[in-house]
Design a protein around this nucleic acid. Structure first.
Lengths: 131, 131
DNA sequence: AATAGTGGTAACCAAAAAGTAACTAATGGC
DNA sequence: GCCATTAGTTACTTTTTGGTTACCACTATT
């Protein structure tokens, strides 16, 4: 699992959720996968500043928490596809609300567009590439 | 602000939200304050495993991010009251959804009751005290 | 004169999270 | 035979976060 927080006496479901997705990269990973399954390498390309080690870690934790499905194909070179589980899909609308909240609460911040699309349209990956 | 994550190219509003509330203690602090303002010492009593330094820090960050109002009274001994801003109040329903999500997605985990009450009832602080 | 009560701060330390660079296995193409 | 390709792993270092202890200011109470 994500974080431990063993000494956090408030072992409630909200703390659990934060332990699972409240970190640097996981919401982005879930976002990217909300449009369908994706290979390890593609995820790494779309989040260029994450290291492979950390990416592996995040994907493992998300898988352990039941948010991701990992499909490994017996090919050479290897191919591994990651996709969202039902659990994760159920979380997407709430993530959307979190993102809506920030847009409303901090209008001055002019965020980049988020990559969860309500309508299944492809996100604008282009601006991910900019240095 | 909470975290920096300057090198996270996905500077979208969801990442921003996570930077603000996605850590060990802040959701709990917001929960506790959802029933009305509270003094520093009371917060510390209700979250007995947090250190004063960290509590101070979290409260400052939440204040800087516009989620908390800090009222200091010129009394001896000092009295400081913290309360939620409108921004924070707008976040509460989403926190509720996050907590609902975990309850549904992980029914086997049997979480403690969360301390955001839909109806303004006082949360059961008792079970916070247990070691 | 000593102590309790409150909301902190400072210096220092430990643990967790993230980052870096080099390395691997297995195969296909040149 | 040599290199590229992919999805990692390993060992190590740095950065970030959280924790501990001692201390302060100011007054009221004992």
């Amino acid at each position: 699992m994500a974080r431990k927080y063993i000494d956090n006496p408030n072992a409630c479901s909200l703390v659990h959720t934060m332990n699972i997705i409240g970190n640097k990269w996981k919401p982005i990973i879930l976002y990217l996968l909300s449009n369908g399954s994706m290979r390890f390498g593609m995820l790494n390309t779309l989040i260029p500043t994450i290291s492979k080690k950390v990416m592996t870690n995040q994907l493992k934790e998300l898988e352990n928490d039941g948010l991701l499905l990992r499909q490994s194909f017996a090919e050479i070179p290897p191919r591994v596809e990651y996709s969202l589980t039902e659990k994760a899909v159920g979380l997407l609308p709430v993530l959307k609300l979190l993102s809506d909240w920030a847009n409303e609460a901090y209008p001055e911040m002019d965020f980049e567009q988020c990559r969860i699309m309500e309508n299944g349209k492809k996100p604008a990956y282009n601006n991910v590439y900019k240095k």
